[in-house]
């Protein structure tokens, strides 16, 4: 059960948020070929380490935002706005 810092409301419990999946996915246009379109629809990153993802503060301000979360430790390295570029992080991965 995570504690997430909403950029607008402050640190709140995970139950207030909805997970939105991977961030920084570019939506292809109508001219995309089938391979590109299916990659967009179905293929997602599943790293062991830092994952850039978006969350909705559903039972709060109702805003979407991005976080960089370590999938192993659940440590949240950064919180940033939608549309902001991926933050520069030293990819910290805890040992086994």
């Amino acid at each position: 059960m995570l504690r997430i810092r909403c950029p607008w409301c402050g640190t709140r419990d995970e139950v207030e948020f909805n997970f939105g999946g991977e961030s920084h996915i570019t939506r292809p246009g109508l001219d995309a070929d089938d391979a590109l379109w299916s990659d967009y629809l179905f293929n997602k990153e599943n790293p062991r380490g830092v994952h850039y993802e978006h969350w909705l503060h559903k039972y709060g301000c109702g805003r979407w935002f991005n976080i960089a979360r370590d999938t192993l430790t659940h440590e949240i390295h950064a919180v940033y706005a939608m549309g902001d570029p991926k933050p520069e992080l030293v990819e910290k991965i805890a040992g086994d």
């Binding site: 939105g20 939506r27 978006h54 939608m82």
Partner: peptide
């Protein structure tokens, strides 16, 4: 409502 908000905030801000 969530679905519309998501498209607005995440894809077409």
């Amino acid at each position: 409502t969530d679905w519309l908000e998501r498209w607005h905030q995440c894809e077409w801000p």
